[in-house]
């Protein structure tokens, strides 16, 4: 398994929205490489015939009735907000488009 480069870590940090500085990157890249090298041991252990497990206890069809239940008041909803205006969450300007 190839070691993870500093550039790759920087790209991942952007995807994960973490502003890592050069020192962070220098520190993190080799650490992640060591971890990845270690976890790479699993490659080839399970063949194509082995199904993946996403949920440890197999269950299906857990549904809720379509009945309204009480939620939060706007005061509760907004209680933790860094900034509020017009009963809405005030957020800095949004650059990108919706997906």
């Amino acid at each position: 398994m190839p070691a993870i480069s500093r550039e790759e870590v920087a790209h991942l940090a952007t995807l994960a929205r973490i502003d890592l500085d050069d020192t962070d990157l220098d520190h993190l890249a080799p650490q992640l490489s060591v971890i990845l090298e270690s976890v790479a041991s699993i490659s080839g252990v399970a063949g194509d015939d082995v199904p993946a497990t996403s949920h440890p206890i197999p269950m299906t069809n857990v549904f809720r009735e379509d009945v309204v239940t009480p939620g939060l008041t706007p005061e509760q909803a907004l209680s933790g907000a860094p900034e509020v205006e017009q009963q809405r969450f005030s957020v800095p300007r949004i650059l990108g488009d919706e997906q």
Binding site: A13, A16, R17, I18, I35, R93
Partner: peptide, 25 residues
């Protein structure tokens, strides 16, 4: 700053080293 820049700065300041390691991983 844009929302994205604020997110990045906050997540850098608010998360510790191990949390960042695992998020990146």
């Amino acid at each position: 700053p844009s929302a994205e820049e604020v997110m990045k700065a906050t997540r850098d300041a608010g998360f510790g080293a191990e949390v960042k390691r695992r998020i990146i991983l």
